[in-house]
Write a protein that binds this DNA or RNA. Sequence first.
DNA 1: GAATTAATTGAACGTTCGTTTTATTATCTG
DNA 2: CAGATAATAAAACGAACGTTCAATTAATTC
Lengths: 216, 216
Amino acid sequence: MARTTGSDGERTEAAARKAAVDLMARYGYEAMSMRQLAAEVGVQAAALYRYFPTKEDLLFTLMRDHMRGLREAWEHSRPAGADPARQLAAYVRNHIAFHIERRHATHVSNMELRSLSPDKLTEILRMRTAYEKELRSILRDGAEAGIFSIEDTGLTAMALIQMMTGVIVWFRPGERLSIAEVTQTYLSMTMRLVGANIGIGTGEERHVHEHAQLRA
Amino acid sequence: MARTTGSDGERTEAAARKAAVDLMARYGYEAMSMRQLAAEVGVQAAALYRYFPTKEDLLFTLMRDHMRGLREAWEHSRPAGADPARQLAAYVRNHIAFHIERRHATHVSNMELRSLSPDKLTEILRMRTAYEKELRSILRDGAEAGIFSIEDTGLTAMALIQMMTGVIVWFRPGERLSIAEVTQTYLSMTMRLVGANIGIGTGEERHVHEHAQLRA
DNA sequence: GAATTAATTGAACGTTCGTTTTATTATCTG
DNA sequence: CAGATAATAAAACGAACGTTCAATTAATTC
């Protein structure tokens, strides 16, 4: 009929966001209907339009907040002034931790870009490029300092990001490997990939080798 | 009204497949309508149902053929009996070449799995797993022979595949780097990542180092 | 050249979609 | 406790969707 007892705008909006991320991750943005989302929240579809003007705007909001969160997480965890190897290690750790904790949101952000209108797509890509630029910068610094051995900075950055983000495709919490183990292995793969000299910089290498051949 | 002059079933089906791959890659499976596809082919939507019983079946056919092609390409290019380093090099080369040549089909195969019914999803995943298993096998052989230095075979295989397949996300033909340059760089990144000793095995290492610091 | 088969059109089916509008009730404010 | 505001339900909108069906014409076969 109308307003229900105990209804709360903030709670409804938060529930809608969370449910939208999960539904979009599972079925895709196009396949998720506003009615389906509303049912998940326990509300009628029309109620959603109090919080999001359009379905596309809902998608955009989710993506923008995801990218903002990624950037903020990195700004809080970056070791300012550290050498490139430590910076790279921090970047890898932050990237993997953030994406594993937000598997579904990452899925949406990576898969549904094509459903954004040009303006909104541009804004998201701008945020993404800025984030990737930080990695390129670290790689370039390391290469110039002779710490890394890199053929092509831009290409290496893309390869690393694809590799790291790919974790969410196969990683499932509570399975064979813990988050710490996965992160550690990706860290050592990254260091080898960029040709970081073992024993210099990150303070991780000894630890890495103790884990060697876990299941080769 | 009815059959058009010059109409040819084989040509129409081939055109529909090609257009479907392009449209799905650009807009996504759900967002592509059968009418849109038909318009691209120059035909009415109903005509498509002569070749594909349902829209989902069209998607499945495209994915299955893509996976078959990948497997066949690998079986034709694998160096039987070669050492693990050469096998890995061949795997990387084949994987990158195949995916770059079929960027759109790869996009579809990777992004639209969730639109398949359980049975068809299982079949596609079975083919994919079999293909990935070949890489794991090469990595294991190399690790056991002491040629590679790998912490976790399964995890490394996934990381490599994500890294390599990721090429299609950013690579555009005719831009800064040629396919040969990209392949070469990925090859050397792969060898470093698996800890292959430079100077052993692939016969690529000298070449690699001549390319070093292309744009670091 | 008649009969058969292949290829397609055009119209229609029922369903679902995103979204809007209006009415109604709960909660808050004074 | 009255008035204002916040939050929702219910119903409806036109449009688009995948798909089916009957009719029609082109090409092939004998």
